[in-house]
C-alpha cells in the first residue's frame, strides 16, 4: 500500500472499523474494516448488491450502521447528521444523478459552496453590502470549477435539460465546489461511452493531483479502476474479501473467484 509518490504508509485519513449494517433481517454490511489514506484514489469494487453504495451512505451519514466506527481526521462520524458530515469536508456524488434539476448549473455549483458561506434569509433578502460581496466571491470559486470541468458553455442552462454525461459532470462539479478533503464518487462513469469515460477519468486524476483531494471511487469498469486507483477494496455480500494495490487485488484468487471469474462464467 502506497500513495502516489511512493511514500510508505502515511497516517490514515479515514479509519473504517468493523462496520455492520442491517435492514431488518438483511445484513448489508458486516465487519468492514479498512483505512483510506490522504491524497490517494481509493476504489471500492464488487458485484451488484455487494454493499458498496451502503458503505458510502454510512460515510456520508445517510445510513446509521449498528456496529463499528468511522473516524475522519480523528472525528467520529457515526451519529452525525449528513449536513454536519458535509461541513467536515466530505463531499459525494450519487449513482443516480441527484442534481437540483430545476436550477441552473451555476446555482447547483453555488450550492456546493453552501458550507463555506454564512448568508442567511435577511442578508440574502437585502442583497446589499456583505451579502452581495459574499455571493460574488463564491461565484469566483464556482467559475474555477467550471473551468476545470470545461462546462463554461452550459453554465446558465437548467440542469434538467442537459444530457446524461453532462449531468454527471455537473454533479462532480457540485461536489468539487465544496473544496472537499474527501470526495466520494458513486459510479461516476456509469452509462457513459468510452470518450466520456476518458474525460471523467482525466478529471478525477486532475482533481487528485492538483488539489490533493482524497477520492473514494465506486466503479464497475475494471480497466478504469485498475488504471487510476492507488488502493482497491473488494466487497462481496457485505464483506471485505480483499484489499490492496490494483496489482495485488488482481492476483487475489478470492477476487478472481468471486468477482472477475463470475463475470466471464
Amino acid at each position: 500500500m502506497a500513495d502516489r509518490n511512493g511514500a510508505s504508509m502515511p497516517e490514515a485519513q479515514m479509519q473504517i472499523e468493523g462496520i455492520g449494517l442491517s435492514f431488518g433481517g438483511v445484513r448489508a454490511l458486516s465487519g468492514i474494516t479498512f483505512n483510506i489514506y490522504p491524497s490517494t484514489i481509493q476504489a471500492i469494487i464488487g458485484p451488484n448488491g455487494a454493499g458498496k453504495t451502503s458503505m458510502l451512505n454510512c460515510i456520508s451519514g445517510l445510513y446509521k450502521p449498528q456496529q463499528g466506527q468511522i473516524r475522519f481526521e480523528g472525528q467520529n462520524l457515526i451519529g452525525r447528521a449528513p449536513h454536519e458530515i458535509a461541513r467536515l469536508g466530505i463531499a459525494r456524488s450519487f449513482q443516480n444523478i441527484e442534481l437540483f434539476r430545476h436550477m441552473t448549473v451555476v446555482d447547483n455549483l453555488m450550492l456546493g459552496r453552501h458550507v463555506h458561506m454564512r448568508g442567511g434569509v435577511l442578508t440574502g433578502g437585502l442583497y446589499w453590502g456583505p451579502g452581495q460581496r459574499e455571493e460574488i466571491a463564491h461565484r469566483e470559486a464556482v467559475e474555477q470549477v467550471i473551468d476545470l470541468l470545461e462546462i463554461q458553455s452550459i453554465r446558465k442552462k437548467t440542469v434538467g435539460s442537459l444530457s446524461y454525461g453532462l449531468q454527471k459532470r455537473v454533479e462532480l462539479g457540485r461536489a468539487l465546489a465544496m473544496h472537499p478533503r474527501l470526495l466520494l464518487l458513486d459510479e461516476p462513469m456509469a452509462g457513459m461511452n468510452s470518450e466520456e469515460k476518458e474525460d471523467m477519468a482525466r478529471f478525477i486524476l486532475d482533481i487528485s493531483e492538483e488539489q490533493r483531494t482524497t477520492i473514494v471511487l465506486i466503479e464497475h469498469d475494471m480497466g478504469v479502476v485498475m488504471d487510476i486507483s492507488d488502493n482497491v477494496a473488494v466487497l462481496e455480500f457485505g464483506q471485505l474479501i480483499a484489499y490492496g494495490t490494483p496489482a495485488e487485488v488482481k492476483a487475489n484468487p478470492a477476487v478472481i473467484a468471486a468477482y472477475l471469474g463470475q463475470e466471464h462464467s
Binding site: 449536513h83 458535509a86 453555488m110 450550492l111 453552501h114 458561506m117 442583497y127
Partner: peptide, 23 residues
Amino acid sequence: RSRAGRAMVAIRDQDIAAQVIGV
C-alpha cells in the same frame, strides 16, 4: 439568488442531495 433561498430550492428539488451538500 442567494445562499438561504438556494438551500430552500435545493430541498424542493432533491432533499437527500441537499443534506449531503451541507444543507
